[in-house]
Amino acid sequence: MDFVDFPEMGRADLRALRIAIDTAFRGFTRAYGETLEQIFHPIQILLVFIENILIDSPWILVLAGLALMIWALSRSWKIVLGTIIALLLIGYFGMWEDTMRTIAMVAVCTLIAVAIGIPTGILMARFNRANQIIIPVLDMMQTMPSFVYLIPVVMIFGLGKVPGVIAVVIYAVPPIIRLTNLGIRQVPADVLEAAAAFGSSGGQTLKDVQLPLALPTIMAGVNQTIMMSLAMVVVASMIGVRGLGQPVLQAINNQYFTLGVMNGLAIVAIAIIFDRATQAYGKRLQKHLEAVHG
């Protein structure tokens, strides 16, 4: 037997296999593509709606609104001031509209990721079986190169916003699922026993004890999800998502150094703003742990 060459499948067989799978998938796309697009259409409506609000309103109102939101989350003047300066600079260098598109995109992706992630995390914390099944799926979602799952997404939805959102959510949802699961599992057993001893139902324990105690951890998940959504902005621009990613892509293709750096820095600025704001919020949720009896 020859151990130098791997005993691989015949070339013809491999080609036939590929063609068979590709044809089947193309068939599936033709048959159900339209239906799937219909199902996911509301995402497009929501995204366009938010984008329009951010772009069509007077910039000063948008700036004030964002500053107010950051204040509500962080209660820190420093972070709010940093936000205002960063956004003014972004506007001055002509990146206002692209930045608004990116913020809208990240907002929608985060919303969807939270809506999927928290219930999934709860499910995993509740049933070990679900945990066993979902963990490998999450591992795959986080390690599979995003270009690989862009292929079927683009085949079904074509180029545009919706496939962009789907690709970003696939990439950004695992941390919130994992951290929701972790947060609930970390609730001390004696506290759960106390809840049970007082006759709490499963739902009451979840709502009154497990979720509130897991919330700081869940917020860390939301923070990670936002960061990962922003990281995907450039990749998403390859399938037609407009925003700060597109000029970066253009800069790569044409070797426009300054254009690339400016838009890159704008992405970094937004990332830092959202990171600091959500972290400050997470910290505020843990107030009850801070004041320790001396």
């Binding site: 001390p188 026993e193 106390a194 809840a195 007082f198 004890v209 009850h288 742990l289």
Partner: peptide, 29 residues
């Protein structure tokens, strides 16, 4: 559940209070 709610109450060695609730919120639980 009904029996636990209406007939019994328990006090624990390590207190097992709800850390995210104030004294009043713990007591009304």
């Amino acid at each position: 559940r009904e029996f636990r709610r209406s007939k019994t109450a328990m006090v624990f060695q390590k207190f097992a209070l709800f850390p995210h609730r104030t004294v009043l919120e713990n007591t009304v639980y």
